[in-house]
Amino acid sequence: MKFLHLTIVLTISLIASACASTGVISLGENLYYIGKKDGSPGLGISLENKAEVYKEANAFCESKGLKLEIVEETVVAAAPARLGSTEIEFKCI
C-alpha cells in the first residue's frame, strides 16, 4: 500500500512539474526562448498550452513597451507515453 501511495504522489508531482514553463530565457541580443510541456492527458496539440506560451512571451515584450515577433515555433503533439509541448524563439520589437 505504501508503494502505491508513493507511486501516485510521484506521478502527480511529475505531471505538475511537466506543466511548468521554462520562463523567458535570453538567447542573445533581443532573442528569447520559452517552452512548456503540456501535462494534460490526450493526443494531439493542446491549443491551451500553446496559448499560454504565447501569452507569457507577449507579456514579457509588453513589459518592455514592445511587441512580440515570433522567430521560430516548435509544437510537439502529445502521444501515448509522450507529453506534448510548445516552444518558441522570439524577439521584442
Rank of each mutant, 00 (worst) to 15 (best):
V75L: 07
A18V: 04
L27M: 12
E48K: 11
P80S: 09
M1C: 13
I12F: 13
S26Y: 00
K91P: 01
L4V: 12
A20W: 12
D38S: 10
T22D: 06
G65S: 03
L4F: 07
P41L: 09
A57P: 02
V76F: 02
L66F: 04
S26F: 00
Y32A: 02
G28A: 08
V76P: 01
G35F: 02
S46W: 13
K2C: 01
M1L: 13
E56G: 00
E87I: 07
A79P: 00
N30D: 09
A78C: 08
V71C: 00
G42D: 08
K67E: 10
I93E: 15
K91W: 03
A79E: 11
P80N: 05
E72H: 10
A51T: 05
S85K: 02
E62H: 09
S46R: 07
S85T: 02
T22E: 07
K36G: 01
G23W: 04
A18I: 09
E62D: 14
S21P: 12
L43H: 03
T86Q: 01
N30G: 02
K91L: 08
N30A: 04
K37G: 11
S85C: 07
F3E: 15
L14S: 10
K91Q: 14
I15Y: 02
K67H: 11
S13H: 03
L6K: 14
I88N: 02
F60M: 05
A81P: 00
G35C: 05
L6C: 10
I25V: 15
K64L: 15
E52G: 01
L68M: 10
I8R: 11
T7A: 15
I15Q: 10
G42L: 06
K55A: 12
N58T: 13
V9W: 12
A20C: 07
G42M: 05
K37S: 11
L83C: 07
V76L: 12
C19R: 15
L83N: 08
F60R: 03
C61T: 07
A57C: 09
P80D: 11
T7R: 11
S17N: 14
L83T: 07
V71Y: 01
H5D: 06
A77Y: 03
L66K: 15
V76M: 10
L14Q: 10
G39D: 13
E72T: 04
V53T: 09
L10W: 06
S46V: 08
K67N: 13
T74H: 11
I8V: 15
A51H: 02
H5P: 00
S85W: 00
S40I: 11
F90E: 01
V75G: 01
E48Q: 08
I34L: 06
L66Y: 06
K37Y: 07
I34P: 01
C61M: 04
K50A: 12
E56C: 04
G35Q: 06
K64T: 03
G42Q: 06
V53G: 05
V76N: 12
A78Q: 08
E62N: 12
V53Q: 04
T74D: 11
I88T: 01
V75T: 14
G44N: 06
E48C: 00
C61K: 03
T74G: 01
G44T: 12
E87W: 05
V75I: 15
C61H: 05
G23A: 07
S46C: 07
S85G: 08
E56F: 02
K67I: 09
C19S: 13
K64A: 08
A57L: 08
K50P: 00
N30Q: 08
N49C: 11
I88V: 14
Y33R: 10
F3N: 14
E73Y: 06
